[in-house]
Amino acid sequence: MAKTVTLAHGAGGKQTSELIHEVFEAHFKNPLFTADDAAVLDIEPGKLAMSTDGFIVSPYEFPGGNVGKLSICGTVNDLACMGAQPLYLTCAFVIEEGFPMDKLEEIAAAMEKTAAEAGVRIVAGDTKVAGKGQVDGVFITTTGIGRIREGVKTGGALARPGDAVIVTGDVGRHGCTILLARNEYGIVADVDSDCAPLWGAVDSVLAAASDVHVIRDATRGGVGTVLYEIAEQSTVGIRIDAPAVPVDPAVKGVCGMLGLEPLYLACEGRLVIIVPQEDKDAVLAALRQGKYTKGAAVIGEVTAENPGKVVMTTEIGAETLLPQPGGELLPRIC
């Protein structure tokens, strides 16, 4: 019978140390990974960014990744959005009793690989096991710290009229992938998650532009939600050119079947970047060299008019408001 996680693995005794030893230490080991109560870190002076995020995704594995990869990318990308090079991460697991051990291995392996790619070290962890049905598979919370690049100041309130609005690739892929992976609507499409660590991309953008105003990770709620957040925080309007928003044809097809808007589907490897017009071309050129950002595109500009609003220029050249994001995404048929 396949080995599974049991309540004993969470009880703190021998089996707990076995689990930590065989799964987590095996994948996360590095000189800083602590066996004590807390990791001890040497940090150079300067500004730090710190972020935490919980990851629950059903199903926990999907085309293009799993919850482990997601948990590293999410926190790495949150730090990157502040112009911070991710340095250290901690992770806390809540595992459902009966969870297959080999799947837990795969999740840990994905975390190891993604962390290595992002140049971040996992320095501490925690494991709890919850009774059957108390959690759905495995929940992971990661917390990270990173060092902010000298002279860099990004934030949602820093968009200025005239700035260019860039997305780093086609939108809505992760949300669409999860929707398909749940197999509730009988739709099949060759779509995989955009889930990716983006510090490398941000690093190249910071090198290419003299002044980056906003970097936002378009996760839950998608690019549309992020644009509204920025418009509100910066008290500016944002005008986007609807036909310029990159969308994978299959994502468009799925959205067409279900009556959904790709701009509101989650991404896990897409940034909205706002820079002065004069930096636009250099940033775009840098992004198009990147592994995960080849599909970067300018989708619009920041305006002084319509503060707090996102306006779209539509395919017939008329202007209309992008609807405000709201509530649960429900497929619309009639």
Binding site: G186, V188, A189, D248, P249, A250, K252, G253, G256, M257
Partner: peptide, 22 residues
């Protein structure tokens, strides 16, 4: 949604809309 028919069998058609099939 306009879609292309991929195959038809027993009153059921597999259709494709720019890569999304059902």
């Amino acid at each position: 949604l306009p879609a292309r028919v991929v195959n038809v069998k027993d009153g059921v058609a597999l259709v494709d809309a720019s890569g999304a099939q059902r």
